[in-house]
Structures are given as structure tokens and as C-alpha cells.
Amino acid sequence: MSEGRIRVLIAKPGLDGHDRGAKVLARAMRDAGFEVIYSGLRQTPEQIVSAAVQEDVDVIGLSILSGAHNHLFPRILELLEEADAEDILVIAGGVIPEEDIAGLEDLGVSRVFTPGTSTSDAIDFIRERIGA
């Protein structure tokens, strides 16, 4: 019978509209056999967490280029905890300065991928962590 498939929510928090990276990654994940739910632009932390919970995803991939990560990510992680969903793996990508990464990882972001990362790195990372 069918195995549980890896489900991922690709979300664009904040107001930036650059979704090339998010969409390329979503397609690469689809081609890697994941079920990918795409959130669309301008998602609030509340919308992202609610969608992640309803969809029972294994992973949330946050894509952000506007520089608002230090404001938005902590809120998302906080809401995940409130929703009893802190087991969801959170990864992030976009324009995120090196010196912010450690802080975000301390908060619970499992991995931050900077520009130039290959999609297979992200996919391998997820496979390794989710173990499927």
C-alpha cells in the first residue's frame, strides 16, 4: 500500500514578490516525489502556520528576499509551537545574511539555504531528516 509521502509547504512570508526560487524549488521537489503545497505571495505567519497544520506537512520551506526574516521567522516558530506542530521541519532560503543564520537556527530553523544552493541540496537535506 502507499507509503506516507513527504509533504512540504513552500511559503512566501512577508510582502516580497520574487518567487522564482520558491517555484523552482517546488517543482524540483515535485520531481523528487514530494507533495508540495504552494502558499502564494504575501502570507502572514498565521496563514502559513494554519496551512501547514491543516495540510499536515512534514516540512515548511520559507522563501524570503525582503530582509524581514528576523521579524517574521520567530513569529512563525512561535505559532507552530502554539499549534502543537513544532515537529514540522522548518527550512529557509533567500537573501539571508550569514550573520543572521545562527540566530535563526537557534530559534528552530533547521537549515538556511543562501542564493546559489542547488535544489538537490535542499531535497537531500529533507530526505535525511524525514527519513523517507
Partner: peptide, 8 residues
């Protein structure tokens, strides 16, 4: 606008 003011 929270978190985005003056950023980009």
C-alpha cells in the same frame, strides 16, 4: 508592514 519598513 511590520518587519518590512525601510528594508528593500
Amino acid at each position: 508592514s511590520a518587519g518590512e519598513v525601510g528594508k528593500v
